[in-house]
């Protein structure tokens, strides 16, 4: 755990990236996240929010299901964050809990990136989390969706210096 704390207390800089810091990758420290992911995947599949059909229903405004899930998830997360903040709770690793603010800038990236993402979400019926849950649940062709999503991410990284943000 100590290595994990050190890696976070060091502000990110290209220098740390170049050093690689391979020893920071401690598999045992990753187990809690893998477990949380497993539970997350089960909830995503069992609530059907990974379903292409449910996404269609949402964009056609013909069911409350997705709105109910997203709305109550938002509400629970909002109340939890307020409680953590008021009680000044620290994380297991001893750090003060923070959600770093996002910078708005000119906002282009949110408008354009968001719209492109929305088109992809409606077509594929999956956002990044559900992609992996769907592939695991047996709709294996979603592995190809994951591959093209990685290609899309790489393309963004490549074009990034030329895109408005």
């Amino acid at each position: 755990m100590t290595t994990a704390v050190r890696s976070r207390s060091q502000p990110f800089s290209p220098a740390t990236a170049r050093r690689g810091d391979a020893q920071q990758l401690r598999l045992s420290g990753l187990v809690p996240y893998a477990l949380m992911g497993t539970l997350f995947g089960i909830v995503l599949v069992k609530s059907e929010v990974v379903s292409w059909y449910r996404i269609q229903e949402m964009f056609r405004f013909e069911s409350f299901h997705m709105y109910g899930v997203l709305g109550s998830a938002f509400f629970t997360a909002f109340v939890s964050l307020q409680v953590l903040k008021r009680l000044k709770v620290r994380s297991r690793t001893g750090e003060p809990i923070t959600v770093p603010p996002r910078s708005l800038g000119k906002g282009y990236r949110y408008w354009i990136g968001g719209s492109i993402f929305g088109i992809g979400w409606a077509l594929s019926g999956a956002c990044p989390g559900p992609l992996f849950a769907l592939a695991g649940s047996g709709v294996t062709v979603y592995l190809m969706t994951a591959v093209t999503a990685i290609l899309g991410t790489w393309t963004y990284g490549y074009l990034r210096p030329r895109l408005p943000h």
């Binding site: 990236r109 354009i112 990136g113 968001g114 719209s115 492109i116 993402f117 929305g118 088109i119 992809g120 979400w121 409606a122 077509l123 594929s124 019926g125 999956a126 956002c127 990044p128 992609l131 190809m144 969706t145 994951a146 591959v147 093209t148 999503a149 990685i150 290609l151 899309g152 991410t153 790489w154 393309t155 963004y156 990284g157 895109l163």
Partner: peptide
Amino acid sequence: GGFLVGFGASY
């Protein structure tokens, strides 16, 4: 769909 999800989410 996947390409746009990846590109859009990162952008």
